[in-house]
């Protein structure tokens, strides 16, 4: 474990907590894409299939449980909670996630480190996570109103992956033959997709104006 990875995991945890706080305290999910939240629940399910078979460390297992529990809780809140679901903007959140899942599944079947079920699912989860934010970014472009909590949630979600890239550089430099092209390429694409959001988020922070994404 290195400081980059620990900070990354904590940033990721913070993003989920910010979102859960928003939904749980003000009972609203305005501006949040259910599609992205469902994709994240699928990402964690496919990535943590080894939760019962491969014990890495208590930290690793506890964090996997937290990410699985929180991602499914958010989907449950947005779908079934009688108050929260009213603020879900289903007419605007129309990104069809099958368009993201199928190519990622095909790619995972073609490009993976080992052709086993668990490994293909693990690989699929990295490709899918790279693009899972797209429905959310599309929704932001459409609704244009980004409240602070949503903006912070997306910022933290993007920052965690950028920190993982620092972790991967650090491990590549310090650990002999540590090479994992699949997470590296996926993580790079994921971080780049946040690029323009980071740019506008930084501008809104610098000019102290409300965050607005161009149409």
């Amino acid at each position: 474990m290195n400081i980059f990875r620990l900070t990354a995991d904590m940033t990721h945890l913070m993003s989920v907590i910010v979102l859960l706080l928003k939904i749980h305290t003000i009972k609203s999910c305005a501006g949040i894409s259910l599609k992205t939240q469902e994709l994240y629940a699928i990402v964690f399910t496919c990535r943590y299939l080894d939760i019962f078979t491969d014990f890495i460390s208590f930290y690793n297992t506890i964090m996997k449980v937290i990410f699985l529990w929180t991602s499914f809780s958010i989907v449950w809140y947005m779908r079934y909670h009688k108050i929260v679901r009213r603020s879900y903007d289903k007419d605007q959140d129309t990104f069809r996630h099958v368009f993201l899942m199928l190519p990622c599944l095909v790619l995972a079947l073609l490009i993976n480190e080992r052709f086993t079920f668990k490994e293909v699912m693990w690989t699929f989860s990295f490709y899918l996570e790279a693009v899972a934010i797209l429905p959310q970014l599309v929704l932001l472009q459409r609704t244009r109103n980004i409240d602070n909590l949503t903006g912070q949630y997306i910022f933290l979600l993007g920052a965690y992956r950028a920190l993982y890239i620092l972790n991967w550089i650090y491990r590549y430099v310090t650990e002999p033959n540590y090479v994992h092209w699949i997470p590296w390429m996926s993580g790079l694409v994921q971080t780049l997709l946040y690029g323009d959001f980071f740019y506008y988020y930084f501008l809104s922070w610098k000019n102290n104006v409300k965050l607005q994404l161009p149409a």
């Binding site: 474990m1 990875r5 995991d9 990721h12 990535r47 080894d50 491969d54 890495i56 460390s57 690793n60 964090m63 996997k64 990410f67 080992r114 490994e119 693990w122 993982y164 972790n167 650990e175 540590y178 997470p183």
Partner: peptide
Amino acid sequence: EEDEGKHDEL
């Protein structure tokens, strides 16, 4: 940390 075939990152 990384045994063969195990993924030690979240």
